[in-house]
């Protein structure tokens, strides 16, 4: 039970980080990125290919993160141009469909060229007991990385001009323009950041188990559920929802079975939409 809880927190923090990338793009651009998990796994595959080419682990990871970030920057600069010209419902639908297509393309390419390529990062060392539960060094490292990046994000959004700029565009795009912020540049930045964070989650997941093309869709679905439960556009909400859903995930697979976890998580998202449409941390206006 405690071990399932701890696993849930470890997993949940990573779910949170996965949701942050999705929620930021929705908040800024009104685009639901249905290729989020695909971009994450693509980054992980790049890392594994680099490591096979004898690049040491840390530089290989940086290459993978950069690849995912650059990919998202290119999406923003090309495919999304058509989306940004639309308003309201047609913008959301067009963005969703285009990103669904991008996801299929990434899936297709990965299945065609790298069907059995996987990223697994074995972290050596004996399990370390935390609250009496032996935690693998991989889990602990993944958690540490996620927590550090989460804190960096909090500081970034609270205390830097660019971070405040991102939040201002999410809250009121016209207000942002009137204080001298270029929403298009902020959007471009957030696309890159989102790709980087997605790939980072795939890398931390690889510290506890292999990540390959079979993980893409579940990553996307998880990111979507986390973003909905946390409130679309809310970074702190995404982390809180991630931890909550991680715990729900582990407990339901511990008491019932792995086969129901996704259904239970989807149920959580559905209940959130009915009970608190703006998410845990969102405000209904």
């Amino acid at each position: 039970m405690i071990s399932a809880l701890m696993d849930g927190v470890v997993l949940g923090l990573q779910y949170g980080l996965l949701g942050v990338g999705l929620t930021l793009i929705y908040g800024l651009a009104g685009v639901i990125n249905l290729a989020h998990g695909q971009v994450a796994v693509m980054g992980a595959i790049v890392v594994s290919l680099a490591m096979e080419a004898d690049v040491p682990a840390v530089p290989a990871i940086l290459i993978g993160l950069a690849a995912a970030a650059v990919f998202m920057l290119l999406v923003d600069a090309t495919l999304m141009r058509a989306v940004y010209r639309q308003e309201g419902e047609s913008r959301i639908l067009l963005g969703l469909l285009i990103m669904l297509g991008v996801g299929f393309v990434i899936d297709g390419v990965l299945e065609w060229r790298y069907p059995i390529q996987q990223l697994g990062l074995r972290i050596g060392g004996e399990p370390i007991p935390i609250l009496g539960v032996p935690m693998s060094t991989g889990s602990l490292l993944a958690t540490a990385v996620t927590v550090v990046i989460g804190l960096v994000l909090v500081v970034f959004f609270r205390s830097t001009a660019l971070g405040r700029g991102v939040r201002s565009v999410i809250q009121d795009e016209q207000g942002a323009m009137l204080v001298g912020i270029d929403p298009a540049r902020v959007r471009t930045f957030v696309f890159g950041l989102s790709g980087l964070l997605a790939a980072l989650v795939a890398v931390t997941r690889a510290m506890t188990g292999p990540v390959g093309v079979s993980s893409t869709i579940s990553f996307t679905i998880l990111a979507l559920i986390v973003a909905v439960v946390g409130g679309l556009g809310s970074v702190s909400g995404a982390f809180a929802a991630g931890v909550l859903l991680g715990v729900v995930d582990r407990l339901s697979s511990f008491y019932i079975g792995t086969y129901v976890t996704t259904i239970i998580l989807l149920l959580c998202a559905a209940i959130t939409i009915v009970a608190r449409p703006a998410g845990l941390f969102g405000r209904s206006h």
């Binding site: 700029g165 809250q171 009121d172 207000g175 204080v179 001298g180």
Partner: peptide, 30 residues
């Protein structure tokens, strides 16, 4: 705006979920 023409619209377009201090900080962006 950056050239020095500041516009205050009737709807104000403040950042409602940010503090007064943060709104003012954003006023001097970047």
């Amino acid at each position: 705006t950056r050239m020095g023409l500041a516009y205050v619209p009737a709807e104000r377009h403040l950042f409602g979920d940010m503090s007064v201090a943060e709104n003012l900080l954003l006023g001097s962006y970047p």
